[in-house]
Design a protein around this nucleic acid. Structure first.
Lengths: 281, 281
DNA sequence: ACAGGTATGGAACGACATTCCATGCTGGAA
DNA sequence: TTCCAGCATGGAATGTCGTTCCATACCTGT
């Protein structure tokens, strides 16, 4: 009666936390939120649960690490080369972890000029904020599970690595915008909250699933939502019915940026009022 | 060997979807997100899983119904008696489900006057928006699980009942604010996104758990977060470190409202620019 | 060669959501 | 009244999940 015996030979490549997180992101991307199971993970990594638990405390920590990796890549891609826009957010986006904060040497010094028009090579703080926001927006589009995870991670442990990452990249531009110091937290919070709220909402059905392009499912989805809103009770939902048509036709990205501009307009308006008549609210 | 036999007598009170949702909300409130299990539910309702599944398709639908019930109570309490503020959002807040939409007969007709100062009995659209937002804010404070659920529900199925409920109560006031029709969707979206993003973030540790009041744990939590931010790498996180002190001292509710005002300022600024020089962006 | 920490893979466990089914109830037809 | 067809209920059974436990292999310094 032999107790237990070794059957499969050991893997050649060593297991590491990075490899695990990378595999987790891939699983989440391909199979959705419910696709990330320790069983699928052990199969993909050709190992057992015990090996994974040696590197990772539990599933929650794994989800947190996956979220952080993707967010780090997103804000790094957007924060660094503002001209390159958010194209860097595409791809697998993992394994970026540490390098993210190393970007942005001493920029944001040539900023804070006017606000609207931008000449070649000079990027306004507004544009940088838009760039960071779009980076997150695209990251959520590429990794639909990120929306829920961001909400969960941020509300469960805002002291984690994710919040400061976003806060920092937005806050620097808020500072460059000329906002007085006692308004930094308020203005940055408002921007970050809008971005997270909006990005979360738009996480639906970019649909890399079917063979069709993302736009097709997206259009179908918007059509369904719009139709549903049009069929609401006219007495209870007059406004919602009135905007249903706008829902069907709107472009996510434009809409998202329009919201950013709205918040930015509010910030600059409040700043202007503050500098004109200081000491007031 | 008798196959199966009846043991416990049938309950007297009938089971209903409402009673199930109500019990679900209570379980979520008292035991947190992980406290809602079909086991706990069957025990509390003194029944079996089959009975529950007769009224509810699956756990997801149950969570959606619980979310909708709480949100309905929140926007109803805030939307109706704007003077009574959001006190109505306290309490158990369940079992409101259907009645929510029945509120608000024909208000928002006496609105759209000036914007800033409010005399007795007259409530500006701005105040109504603040009221609705605070209603949601307080609801999330009373039901911490609501933050994650809102994010999940809204990103998974925006055609559900929750989104229109919030959208409608905010949108009516946006309309009353004088925003031109083609800006309704953008402005309302921006507000709703900010509210949901901010409320989700503030869902942490109002801590009805320990015997101490909510404020105590909240202060401890903020202190921990602030300290953590202060210990970040100075090279990577200069801005975040700079605002860490503001984090420790800030008041959630004030901060939340300040963000609302920021967005409102942006909306009115854009509206003003639009009416001054129509046809531009 | 060997000891001890590091790392690994598989079996086992308990909790969970969900399904299945035998049973009880109720209201209308006979 | 009796009977039958659904509605409704509760409990047992199922399969999957996260997690723990442990025997074992690898590796580094001696």
């Amino acid at each position: 009666m032999a107790t237990r015996s070794r059957r499969t030979p050991r893997r050649t490549e060593a297991l590491s936390r990075e490899r695990i997180v990378e595999a987790a992101v891939e699983l989440l991307d391909s199979a959705g939120e419910s696709g990330l199971t320790f069983r699928a993970l052990t199969e993909r990594l050709a190992t057992g649960p015990g090996a994974i638990y040696w590197h990772v405390a539990n599933k929650g920590e794994l989800l947190g690490a996956a979220t952080d990796a993707v967010v780090a890549a997103a804000v790094a891609g957007a924060g660094a080369g503002a001209a390159a826009q958010a194209e860097a957010a595409a791809g697998d986006a993992a394994e970026a972890g540490a390098e993210a904060a190393a970007a942005e040497p001493g920029e944001d010094t040539a900023a804070a000029e006017d606000g609207a028009e931008v000449s070649v090579g000079v990027v306004s703080p507004q544009d940088r904020i838009r760039s960071v926001a779009l980076g997150l927006f695209d990251a959520i589009e590429d990794h639909p599970w990120l929306a829920t995870q961001l909400a969960t991670q941020l509300s469960r442990s805002p002291w984690g690595p994710v919040t400061p990452r976003i806060f920092e990249s937005v806050g620097r531009q808020v500072r460059a915008l000329g906002v007085p110091e006692d308004g930094w937290f308020t203005a940055t919070s408002a921007l970050v909250h809008y971005v997270l709220g909006a990005a979360g909402q738009n996480a639906v059905n970019t649909a890399h699933g079917s063979g069709l392009g993302p736009g097709v499912d997206r259009a179908a989805f918007l059509d369904a939502a719009s139709t549903a809103w049009e069929q609401l009770d006219p007495d209870d939902y007059p406004f919602t019915r009135a905007v249903a048509a706008q829902v069907r036709e709107h472009d996510d990205r434009e809409q998202f940026l329009a919201g950013i501009d709205l918040v930015l307009a509010g910030i600059t308006a409040v700043v202007a009022a503050h500098t004109a008549a200081p000491g007031q609210e």
